[in-house]
Design a protein around this nucleic acid. Structure first.
Lengths: 264, 264
DNA sequence: CGGGGGATTGATAACTTTCAAACTAGGTGG
DNA sequence: CCACCTAGTTTGAAAGTTATCAATCCCCCG
């Protein structure tokens, strides 16, 4: 089987009339296929599985699934899908977005390597958002039901999972709430500073990186328009804080960046 | 003991230099004091304790504490406090707000009777926000450590708690994220519609209620200023959707209200 | 009656969106 | 191989929204 058929639909076309057959079909058909699992995982140091012992890791291994790489534009799940699994990004990048009743797209967040996503389905068993690959991406998929059974057996692990999930939900989302109380320039600076620190915490360069998302995605995430984002990148560059070349960002003055960014 | 000494500090004074001695002092001294507990609780139908059997309720009763009423302006906890408990509002109203490194106040949310608060401390053991009574309020305080022990013993309860908490975290907070992507008038209309439905779900009138919070609180919650809120209330009233008399809201045209409000 | 916080209203300034146009880089087909 | 096409991005000008500063009003309470 070739991967050629992954490319037949553009991200936009996918977005307008989401069709999960390609992305999900692969996920399902490659279950337990023999791809690398927990022990060899590239993001292992950032995974809950690493917070347990060998036996625990073995258990995680059982419920985890490393499906084949997903192509840019493919979906991990759709808004309204039945919630079955939590995911962790191993490589690439994923965006979560919601389409409201007026057809407006709202970007909930971006998931970089090592980060968790899929929690939007935990509340009522249905995913509230779409999760779409921004790039060729690989993930780890953990079955939630099996995860539940696993946690029932280990109170300690359960406690840790509680912690991790509440951190995901609260520490990551609540600060975003009041991002929107500030002018857009500050939001953008904060966004860049946040991406930078997330790359750094994964051992990548905090001063030079490539944004996996479009200007439009950034705009929708920050609650503004792509034109405004573009203008502000220009302005921030003129101020000598960043060097912006399309999606490549080089931070020239990290101190000024952090000083202008919001308290998170 | 009288309650007179509760009134010595105004909400503002409390806010500027928070002093928890009165509110928390009472909480501690009345622990296990004989106030009504789960079985007689007014918000029992909305509490997790009601989702279990008599024995489970007994267990909840053990870890729950119904402290004396808290006066307007008093704090349940402060930003930075060690996290010990989750709370549920029994009567009155509570606001959660965060002060960022620039001294700016951000209102995370308002908690009405039956609603949970305190989850902002779960992530790292420290409260991220202040929780302050907007009015004379009574709460139910559940010790988190004891709750954890309780959950360890009952996988089913654990599952339910997971559910409830993720619903709190995700269903309530994520939608707020994209509220801020819309003009302020829409945010305000949505805010009123939300309060209305929350009162309704607690068996109170959805068409006529009194807002427990000030214009400034609403403004800070919606990411705007009190002047703008005031102007918009006037405009929405001129449109015949609401009748606004200070903090009393009467919804004249519920359909128009919901049509103008955002998809949540 | 006077003080004071909360709320409202007005005028102006600042910011952001909208509509339009042009530019860029990568991919396509002749 | 080049012209063309397209999505993504940038820039400009005008319109719209919101913040800011300032003044006034209102009502509760001492």
């Amino acid at each position: 089987m070739t991967l050629a058929n992954f490319n037949t639909s553009s991200p936009i076309a996918e977005k307008e009339r989401p069709d999960k057959s390609n992305a999900r079909g692969i996920v399902v058909s490659l279950k337990k296929s023999g791809f690398v699992k927990c022990r060899e995982c590239s993001v292992r140091p950032f995974c809950i599985a690493s917070k347990t012992n060998d036996k625990g890791m073995q258990a995680f291994n059982e419920i985890s699934n490393h499906p084949a790489p997903t192509q840019k534009g493919d979906y991990f799940y759709h808004q309204g899908d039945t919630f079955t699994s939590l995911y962790r990004v191993r490589s690439g990048a994923v965006k979560s977005y919601h389409i409201d009743k007026n057809g407006q797209e709202h970007i909930i967040g971006f998931h970089l390597p090592g980060e968790l996503f899929g929690t939007d389905g935990m509340a009522n068993g249905q995913h509230q958002n779409f999760a779409q690959a921004l790039d060729t991406s690989t993930v780890c998929e953990m079955n939630y039901e099996q995860l539940g059974s696993l946690l029932k057996k280990s109170p300690d692990l359960q406690q840790k999972m509680f912690q991790i999930l509440s951190a995901e939900c609260i520490q990551k989302i609540e600060p975003l709430l009041f991002l929107h109380h500030r002018p857009v320039e500050e939001r953008l600076v904060t966004f860049i500073a946040d991406i930078s620190s997330r790359y750094q915490s994964r051992g990548l360069s905090p001063k030079r990186f490539i944004l996996p998302m479009s200007r439009r995605d950034i705009a929708h995430h920050l609650g503004t328009t792509e034109e405004t984002i573009s203008r502000l990148f220009s302005r921030i560059q003129r101020m000598g804080i960043l060097l912006v070349e399309k999606r490549t960002i080089i931070i020239k003055d990290m101190e000024k960046l952090q000083a202008s960014s919001m308290a998170l």
